Simulated assay, not measured.
Amino acid sequence: MKVSVIIPVFNEEENIEFLVKELNSYFKKEKRFSTEIIFVNDGSTDETYLHLKNAKHLNYSYKILSFSRNFGSHAALRAGILRAEGDFITFMYADLQDPLTLVSRMFDQVYKNGTDICWAFRNSSASTGTEKLFSRAYASLMRKYAVPNFPKKGFDIVLFSRKVKQCLDKNLENNSSVFIQILSLGFKQTSITYDKRERKRGKSKWTLSKKIKLLIDSFVAFSFAPIRLVSIIGLIFFIVGILWTAIIIVRKLVYDDLASGWPALLSILLVGFGITNISLGIIAEYLWRTLDASRKRPAFIIDEITEDTEVVEVKKPVRILKDIN
Rank of each mutant, 00 (worst) to 15 (best):
M1C: 13
M1Y: 13
K2F: 12
S4P: 03
E12V: 01
E12I: 02
E14S: 05
F18R: 03
S25A: 14
S25T: 13
Y26L: 11
E30Y: 07
K31I: 05
F39A: 00
F39T: 00
V40E: 04
D42G: 03
T45S: 10
T45G: 10
D46Y: 01
E47H: 14
N54W: 02
H57P: 05
L58F: 13
Y60G: 00
I64K: 01
S66P: 03
F67A: 04
S68H: 07
G72L: 02
A76W: 01
R78N: 08
R78E: 05
L82V: 10
G86M: 01
T90G: 02
T90N: 02
M92V: 06
D95K: 00
L96Q: 06
P99K: 07
L100M: 12
T101D: 15
L102V: 05
L102K: 05
L102Q: 00
V103K: 04
S104K: 12
D108T: 11
V110P: 00
N113A: 14
N113P: 07
I117T: 02
A120T: 01
F121R: 05
R122W: 03
R122D: 05
S125N: 11
S127H: 08
G129Y: 09
T130M: 12
T130D: 13
R136H: 14
L141N: 09
M142A: 01
R143G: 03
F150Y: 03
K152A: 11
F155E: 10
D156T: 12
D156E: 11
L159I: 05
F160W: 01
K163M: 04
V164Q: 00
C167F: 15
K170Y: 11
L172W: 03
E173I: 10
S176G: 11
S177L: 04
F179L: 10
I180R: 04
I180G: 06
Q181T: 15
I182H: 01
S184M: 13
G186S: 09
Q189G: 00
T193M: 12
Y194W: 06
K196F: 06
E198W: 08
K200H: 07
K200C: 12
S204F: 08
K205C: 09
K213G: 13
L214E: 02
I216Y: 00
A221W: 01
F224S: 15
A225T: 13
I227L: 15
R228G: 15
V230R: 02
I232T: 13
G234E: 10
G234V: 07
I236R: 14
I236W: 06
F237M: 12
F238G: 10
G241W: 08
W244K: 15
A246Q: 05
I248E: 15
I249W: 08
R251S: 07
R251W: 07
L253Y: 11
V254P: 01
V254T: 09
Y255R: 10
D257R: 11
G261A: 03
P263W: 06
A264Q: 13
L266F: 12
L266W: 15
G272K: 04
F273S: 09
F273E: 12
L280G: 04
G281Y: 08
I283P: 03
I283E: 06
E285N: 07
E285L: 03
R289Q: 08
R295Q: 11
K296D: 08
R297C: 13
P298S: 04
F300L: 07
F300R: 03
I302F: 04
D303L: 08
D303R: 04
E307Q: 09
E313G: 13
I320K: 09
L321G: 09
K322T: 13
D323Y: 14
I324W: 14
N325H: 15
N325T: 09
N325Y: 12
